[in-house]
Every structure is written in C-alpha cells, then in structure tokens.
Nucleic acid binder design. Structure first.
Length: 138
DNA sequence: GCCAACGTTGGC
DNA sequence: GCCAACGTTGGC
C-alpha cells in the first residue's frame, strides 16, 4: 500500500465536486515527475486531496480505483491518468501552515517542492495528516 | 497583484 | 550541452 497527495484548485474542481461525482478521471497532468507518480499508483492506494490557492489545505481522502491508463484529454505525448474515488472527508482540514509547523510534514514534497501536483507520501506522513485531521484546532 | 521557484523552449 | 527567455504554479 502506498500513499499519495494530489493537488487541485477548488475553483476548478473541488472536493465537493469530486464527492458528488463519486469518481473522477485524474487527467491533465503534464509534468514528467507527476506523471511518473501517477504511473506508480496501485489500485487501493490512498490519496490525500489538497486544495491549492484557495483553502491551502488537505480536505479529504480518496482511493485509486483504476490504475494508470491513457489520458483522453492529451492530444499528443505519453500522458496518463488514474481514476480516483472519494473515501472520506476530513473532519478538520489540515492546512499548509500545519504542514510547515509539523516536524514530520514539513519534509513532504508539498513544502519542499511546492509546484509538484502529484507526490508520494510516506506512511508516517500520511498517518500524521489523518491524526491532525481528527484532533480539533481550537 | 506580485513574485519566487521551477519547468520548458529555442538559439547558439 | 549550455543558458537566457519565457510560461506556469502557487504562496503571500
């Protein structure tokens, strides 16, 4: 089992859109490193859903329901997408500030490589996010 | 709205 | 193969 984090601008496609859709093709990735991460996803892997620009917080957990297949929105080039399905909405979203303040989470690519849109997380990092999401932030 | 970081493109 | 120019992402 591997763990991942994907970014999306909520003004383009928010967690609520995703949740209503029940499932979505994660298309449009046009960065080699992000693509390689998509390709490494296995069915059942858990994926954190992060809202970039607006919110700047992890809002939910998704699951890979279909592994890498050709991205239908790509006219040329070797681009792929995966299918994601919403799993759970976080009780308390975990913000970028919380990532920066946390000794475990500040080592994630979200902080160290801020422009990458699909990134791997270690199991401790993933668990840390869920833990922060479960505890309230006064 | 600005700008830093970073990826891509194209001239040489 | 280098590097300047340019475009994009995303935080502030």
């Amino acid at each position: 089992m591997n763990y991942w984090l994907v970014k999306q601008e909520p003004t383009v496609y928010s967690w609520d859109n995703f949740y209503k859709d029940k499932s979505t093709e994660w298309t449009g990735v046009r960065n080699f490193q992000a693509r390689n991460n998509l390709r490494a996803m296995a069915k059942g892997d858990e994926v954190l859903f992060y809202h970039s620009n607006v919110g700047k917080e992890v809002v939910g957990v998704a699951q890979v329901s279909k592994e890498a297949h050709p991205d239908p929105t790509a006219n040329e080039g070797d681009w792929i997408c995966v299918t994601l399905t919403p799993k759970t909405k976080l009780k308390n979203p975990v913000t970028l500030v919380q990532f920066k303040d946390d000794p475990v989470l500040k080592l994630t690519p979200l902080i160290k490589q801020s422009r990458l849109s699909v990134m791997p997380l270690t199991e401790p990092q993933f668990r840390r996010v869920l833990k922060l999401a479960a505890s309230s932030r006064e």
